[in-house]
Simulated scan of single mutants.
Amino acid sequence: MGKLTAEAIVERALEIGDAEGLDAVTIRRLATELGVTPMALYWHFKNKEQLLVGMADHLVDGFAAKPADERSWQEQLRDLVEGLIRTLRSYPCAKNVLEQVDQTEVPSFLKVWDQALGLARTAGFSTEESCLISKYLLQSAIAIADAPVHLRPGRTPDEVQEIVRVKRLGLQSLPVDRYPHLVEMAGPMVEGMDPDFYDSFGVDLVLSGIEALARSRA
């Protein structure tokens, strides 16, 4: 192969993480698959911790946040959250990657975070409130992106379907007098729902709280 690049390494690492989980991502495994020695990878990433940061930076870097414009802060914040969700949804392992790194060390994530902070300040929130709003908002986007469409790494669709069936039956078999709502809603609870509805409702739920709080401060 040609000259080994950091981008080629993290792209292959993300492919393995998506298919088999992050435990399967090792320097030795990557070196073998890329046809190089482990030392060639250490030139770019000294350890797995640095590799995970590189993976996180690459997956978030696919989202190009729009610069501030004349639209309302509400519209810009929605754009930010929905765009981040769409980007992260492309990687089944995205949530696990971002949970295992110090997000302040991920340049592309810092860009998104900075924009969220600026929009919160534009909405009239204090610096402390803006810090919390940006954290809750971005973590919500990561959580929403993780579901409902991803299959567990290393499992076939048939295996996942069987796991879902067993979970649904387990909830439906609970004592209905003690857990009436869990029994009634066992289907959508474990089988998931339309991804578009899942995303739009999740974003509405998060942003409506921020908007209502901003109105109360006006």
Score class of each variant (00 low, 15 high):
Glu159Met: 14
Glu20Thr: 10
Gly83Cys: 12
Val36Leu: 00
Cys93Asp: 05
Gly54His: 00
Met185Lys: 11
Ser90Lys: 15
Met55Ala: 11
Ala6Met: 11
Arg89Gly: 02
Thr156Gln: 11
Leu110Pro: 01
Asp18Arg: 04
Thr32Pro: 08
Asn96Thr: 14
Gly62Cys: 08
Ala147Ile: 04
Gly124Thr: 05
Cys93Lys: 03
Gln161Met: 12
Arg29Gly: 07
Thr5Pro: 03
Val203Ala: 12
Pro175Phe: 11
Gly124Ser: 05
Lys135Glu: 07
Ala120Asn: 02
Asp204Val: 12
Trp113Val: 01
Val183Lys: 00
Glu129Tyr: 05
Asp114Gln: 14
Gly187Pro: 03
His150Pro: 04
Asp196Cys: 02
Val176Asn: 05
Leu174Ser: 10
Pro153Glu: 06
Glu105Trp: 07
Ala218Tyr: 10
Leu213Pro: 11
Ile142Leu: 08
Asp204His: 12
Gln50Ala: 10
Gly192Gln: 07
Lys66Tyr: 10
Ile163Asp: 07
Val160Glu: 11
Tyr136Gln: 09
Leu34Gly: 01
Leu30Asn: 00
Gln74Pro: 09
Leu213Ser: 15
Gln74Asn: 14
Ala141Gln: 00
Glu191Lys: 15
Ala8His: 10
Thr37Asn: 06
His181Met: 08
Met189Ser: 09
Gly187Ser: 10
Glu184Cys: 10
Arg155Gln: 15
Asp61Ala: 15
Gln100His: 13
Asp158Met: 10
Ala218Arg: 13
Ile210Thr: 01
Pro38Phe: 02
Ser126Lys: 09
Asp18Ile: 02
Ser216Pro: 00
Tyr91Pro: 02
Ser134Lys: 00
Thr122Gly: 10
Glu191Phe: 13
Asp57Gly: 05
Leu41Gly: 00
Phe63Glu: 03
Asp23Val: 13
Gly21Glu: 11
Leu30Lys: 01
Glu191His: 15
Leu59Gly: 09
Glu49Val: 10
Arg28Gly: 03
Ser126Thr: 14
Val183Leu: 04
Leu14Ser: 01
Arg178His: 12
Asp18Ala: 07
Leu137Phe: 05
Gln76Lys: 02
Asp177Tyr: 12
